[in-house]
Structure formats: structure tokens, C-alpha cells
Amino acid sequence: MRKVEVVTYSEDWKKDFDEEAMRIEKIIGSEIIATHHIGSTSVNGLSAKPIIDIMPVVRDIKKIDTFNHAMIAIGYEPKGENGLPDRRYFQKGGDNRTHHVHMYEIGNPEIERHLVFRDFLRVHPNIAEKYGDLKEALVKKFPYDIESYISGKEQLASEIEREALEWYKGID
């Protein structure tokens, strides 16, 4: 059973993202339009599971499966859509995961959703702190129960997402 871990923000996460994004960009090449650091490790000061979430935006999602062997060669496990249509998902690190890669084709609404959530937390450190505090409390309560941990933060994450979308619409 994998232990759920939430740690305080690390300045190393940005460097880890940059290094890994370069590796992935070398493999996927011109198919990548942009690569974004998403998830809690992308928000300065936010406590997080120490797993770097990377979101490459690609030209054609159907072509990504042709890169599976190259991704395996740098330590990733291809998971296909992994429950989300039109996404390609990869994990690195086995039971001690270090990276998640979420690839979407340009125009997929999931791209905006991830970026708006991240940017909202970056601009609202008080909300990021509240989110981090909840995650720290949940990991203490459910150290070996990832489902309960995820379920416990779902309501607040949904509230933040709604607020973030309203905020984003207001800055257009």
C-alpha cells in the first residue's frame, strides 16, 4: 500500500519541471506546442504531494502513442487516456511516483481548466494556503488511503475551480 505524502513547497520543483519538460520535448519534438507546469507543485508556497505534473499541449493527440517506447526509455509508464477521453497520461517512478504527464491536443478544454486553476492559486495565496492546509490535514487523517485523501479535498477543489473560472472570465 502506497503512503500518501504531502510536503511543504520546494524551490526544486520548478527546476525538476524544467529538466523533465526538456526530456519530453526532445522525444515528442515538433508535435509539442507548449509545455506547462500544473498541479500543486507549480504554485509557489503550496504544500503538495511531491509529484511534478507536466502538461504538454500537442498538435495531434493520436500521434502521441507512437512515442510510448521512447517515453518508457526515460522511465515513464504509458497509461493511455487513463479515464479521461482525448488525453494521454504517463507516470514515472512506480510506487514512488515523481512525475505525471497529462498530454492534451490544442483546443481541449482541460488545458484551460488546469491553467486557470493554477493561475488563480498563484494570484490568491490565501486560498492556496487554505487548500494546502486541507491537504496536510487529510494526509494525516488518511496516510494510506489515497481515495479518501482525494475525496476529502474534492469539495474545496471544486469551489476553487468555480471561483477561478469566474475570476478568469473577469480578466478577459
Rank of each mutant, 00 (worst) to 15 (best):
residue 23 R to Q: 15
residue 23 R to G: 00
residue 23 R to V: 10
residue 24 I to G: 02
residue 24 I to L: 13
residue 24 I to C: 01
residue 24 I to Q: 06
residue 25 E to V: 10
residue 25 E to T: 14
residue 25 E to N: 11
residue 25 E to H: 07
residue 25 E to S: 08
residue 26 K to W: 04
residue 26 K to A: 09
residue 26 K to M: 12
residue 27 I to H: 06
residue 27 I to M: 09
residue 27 I to P: 04
residue 28 I to E: 00
residue 28 I to S: 01
residue 29 G to Y: 14
residue 29 G to C: 12
residue 29 G to N: 08
residue 29 G to F: 11
residue 30 S to E: 15
residue 32 I to M: 15
residue 32 I to V: 15
residue 33 I to H: 04
residue 33 I to F: 09
residue 33 I to W: 07
residue 34 A to N: 13
residue 34 A to P: 00
residue 34 A to M: 06
residue 34 A to K: 12
residue 34 A to E: 15
residue 35 T to S: 08
residue 37 H to A: 12
residue 38 I to D: 03
residue 38 I to N: 04
residue 38 I to E: 03
residue 39 G to Y: 01
residue 39 G to C: 02
residue 39 G to V: 01
residue 40 S to K: 06
residue 40 S to L: 02
residue 41 T to C: 11
residue 41 T to L: 05
residue 41 T to E: 12
residue 42 S to T: 05
residue 42 S to R: 03
residue 43 V to D: 09
residue 43 V to K: 07
residue 44 N to M: 13
residue 44 N to I: 15
residue 45 G to I: 14
residue 45 G to D: 11
residue 46 L to G: 04
residue 48 A to E: 13
residue 48 A to S: 15
residue 48 A to T: 14
residue 48 A to W: 13
residue 48 A to F: 14
residue 49 K to N: 11
residue 49 K to E: 15
residue 49 K to G: 07
residue 50 P to I: 14
residue 50 P to E: 13
residue 51 I to D: 07
residue 52 I to G: 01
residue 52 I to C: 05
residue 52 I to S: 00
residue 53 D to T: 08
residue 53 D to A: 11
residue 53 D to E: 14
residue 53 D to G: 11
residue 54 I to C: 07
residue 54 I to F: 05
residue 55 M to T: 04
residue 55 M to L: 13
residue 55 M to H: 02
residue 56 P to L: 05
residue 56 P to D: 05
residue 57 V to S: 06
residue 57 V to E: 13
residue 57 V to K: 02
residue 58 V to G: 00
residue 59 R to I: 11
residue 59 R to Q: 12
residue 59 R to C: 07
residue 60 D to S: 08
residue 60 D to I: 10
residue 60 D to F: 07
residue 61 I to T: 09
residue 62 K to F: 08
residue 62 K to L: 06
residue 62 K to M: 01
residue 62 K to G: 11
residue 63 K to I: 09
